[in-house]
Write a protein that binds this DNA or RNA. Sequence first.
DNA 1: TTGTAAGCGTTATCAG
DNA 2: CTGATAACGCTTACAA
Lengths: 350, 350
Amino acid sequence: MEGVIELSVTIKDVAKLANVAPSTVSRVIADSPRISQKTKERVREAMKQLGYHPNLIARSLASQSTQAIGLVMPSSTDTFFQNPFFPSVLRGISEGAHQKHYALYMVTGKTEQEIFHDIVQMVQGSRVDGAILLYSKIEDKIVDYLKENQFPFVVIGKPHKDTEEITHVDNDNVRAAKDGTKYLLSLGHERIGFVGGNPHLVVTIERMQGYKKALEEAGLVVRQEYIIHGQFLIEGGQVAVEELMSLKEPPTALLVADDLMSLGVINKLNTMGIEVPNDISIVSFNNVLLAQVSNPPLTSIDINIFDLGFEAAKNLILKIENPKEPVKRIIIPHELVIRDSCAPFKSNDA
Amino acid sequence: MEGVIELSVTIKDVAKLANVAPSTVSRVIADSPRISQKTKERVREAMKQLGYHPNLIARSLASQSTQAIGLVMPSSTDTFFQNPFFPSVLRGISEGAHQKHYALYMVTGKTEQEIFHDIVQMVQGSRVDGAILLYSKIEDKIVDYLKENQFPFVVIGKPHKDTEEITHVDNDNVRAAKDGTKYLLSLGHERIGFVGGNPHLVVTIERMQGYKKALEEAGLVVRQEYIIHGQFLIEGGQVAVEELMSLKEPPTALLVADDLMSLGVINKLNTMGIEVPNDISIVSFNNVLLAQVSNPPLTSIDINIFDLGFEAAKNLILKIENPKEPVKRIIIPHELVIRDSCAPFKSNDA
DNA sequence: TTGTAAGCGTTATCAG
DNA sequence: CTGATAACGCTTACAA
């Protein structure tokens, strides 16, 4: 006869039972120092007896805060979900949120318009205290909207514009791509291709820049036909390979901007009878778990995805709880993890 | 001079500008048929001018509904997140929720206790209108709690107990495992091992049952040493292989309850110089995208993960919006997808 | 240290 | 068809 179907016990019920005013109960919940121990205990006892739990919605309305943060996905949700990047970054965000007792809120729109609409609702509807953009693309209406309304948000990746005014957590992707390319260069490769993701994503742009820079610094020309864009998916890699390998002078090494793409690349290459790393070398990006069990295991640039998420959540909450928190740019380190997908360049006429 | 920093325009502001009562504005928002067209237009005009957006929190408080559904993850969140099952089921849920304009809410607790606490908060705090359990395990406090409080929820998988009283979306896992095992049997294999996940998960139990049944029906004895449990992760598969292959009489075929585990299995086998499918055959489960690019491509039982999520969301919402909705059991069909990880049994002394 | 009462922004019940 | 007015359950001055 207890703990059952006690439909909505309110603060008033507790107050009545404990013989205090509702406001006192509220203060006990907040553990206000201005309430006597005795009262606190009495109230807590009453809460226990009644199985009281605060109504968070009411609390949110009164206190103008929800203890929830909104997650903003790219409009290509399906692609995004399929990629191991998503769960990893989510883990990081979840951990960061958890430490400060925040929950996560996701809208379910699919198209760009729907998502925009959902976000506006979420923000104006004050369902969340802040938002994390899990991607960065050029010309993003959502960023503009959030900025205009001075709503707390941080972006994972480098904002396309107003970089100095938007707190963001990012890798040094230019540098990372440069590192990867240099590694390939150091193995003697000169015909190096680049397989990137959606060209509207800033991360794609930056990695391409790094790739180009490395080539230029090595005194090589950048060949436009060596640069391919696809989706951050297995098929993206497969399609890229088809194009690249049909060239008269195909590359002998590839910088691939995503592990999942790399799997597709290798898979396609296999079916064509081309071997990695014997016939072609691959440096990949992200170093998700799959990179290890790939055949061959992938040499991949670890970008510490978990940390991207974790820092994003942490800094967003800082911002939420202290509106005058300064704008920050947080750079998460990367690291080239060498496995077995690269080999020294061997001239054809051997 | 418009659309900027209009901090919290309320229904009252709109009412004032449109020269009507707040309640009228509320009715216009709900598109009540009892409001004249003229008034509606006038009010809508005012809303537009002021950039009004309803405060969803206030609405929730007044209407006792949030248009959000809570997601309940297993306590081994990290493992769960890493598995492609998660994004797939999430996609399905998201789609189902989207069609009825629901959002998703996730708590961030890590340990079993924290999660339980978070869920209670979420439920009693009326932050969501219903919940989806993304797993089913034995002795689940959360299920008991939800049931006791008659809170709308559905589980993905088969509830451990009170099966008839809990709406759930599941595969016929016993049958599916039986099908997979029979297929192996039909190839001439008799020494078939089973690699399952966490033994507290109902899905593991059922797949194991199906496996056993198939063997028994074929007149074979179930060997306890052929049954291994691990995590639904790459390492889980790797560890299982170590155990299985150190047996004096190792199996010639494996039924593996998860694709990611299968990758681990194959990977480990490779390093041991054992070839799939020549030396050992594998039937896997889930048929996630990875199954196709695995080397060799996996023969895997497709359980239609997306549909699991989709139906769960759809039926939960049905339940939310109609409390007298009957309890339902929804069985999503499965299908054995044959690829290249199985070969006919070849006796050793060939 | 505690109580009173006024919000928070909606919805919903009555009147009219 | 529209307007008052009372909830919804909590927080937070302001009093006492």
